[in-house]
Design a protein around this nucleic acid. Sequence first.
DNA 1: AATTTATTTAGACATTTGCCTAAACATTGA
DNA 2: TCAATGTTTAGGCAAATGTCTAAATAAATT
Lengths: 84, 84
Amino acid sequence: MNALFKALNDPTRRAILERLRAGPATAGAIAEQFSFSAPTISHHLDLLRQADLVTSQKQGQFVLYTLNMTVFDELLGWLYQFKS
Amino acid sequence: MNALFKALNDPTRRAILERLRAGPATAGAIAEQFSFSAPTISHHLDLLRQADLVTSQKQGQFVLYTLNMTVFDELLGWLYQFKS
DNA sequence: AATTTATTTAGACATTTGCCTAAACATTGA
DNA sequence: TCAATGTTTAGGCAAATGTCTAAATAAATT
């Protein structure tokens, strides 16, 4: 829960998640869309992975990142207690 | 959106929200439940108010804090785009 | 009016965060 | 095998964060 909110508490990381809605992408492809260095994006991806919001798989020299939507259920569950 | 995720990215603040589910409470009553100083809790309440997650009204020398659940809809809306 | 009680503001301090560059690692291709 | 490409790791730095104590503000009580 902590890692989840931490990961979401950054506009760049949220933008990465929105980018991944369109489908999996390599670290490099993601980095190109943002005006930050590759190491910075790599670090953001690491935090997203720690929160289990994305998964990664190595494909040759590329690393493909994929959105993991199952974690959102946990967040929805937390929110649900505040409903009504 | 930024203020919202920022406010939620702290276990003490989330616990305060959960406390307020039971009903409005004064700053002092809230502070008593946590082993932090009153100024620290006051600061947390300020961040929650900035995110519009709580509202406050002065009642005599007390300040009553109330959960504002309407903001959760904004969060649900953001989450919704990731569904399915 | 002076004192007590409730809360916030101000300022200090250690830790965390987000960024960078340089270097390391891993894979592909010449 | 050497060079090029993609990605991560390491280390440094400024800014933000969470905590504290001391002081200020505001309302109630004596």
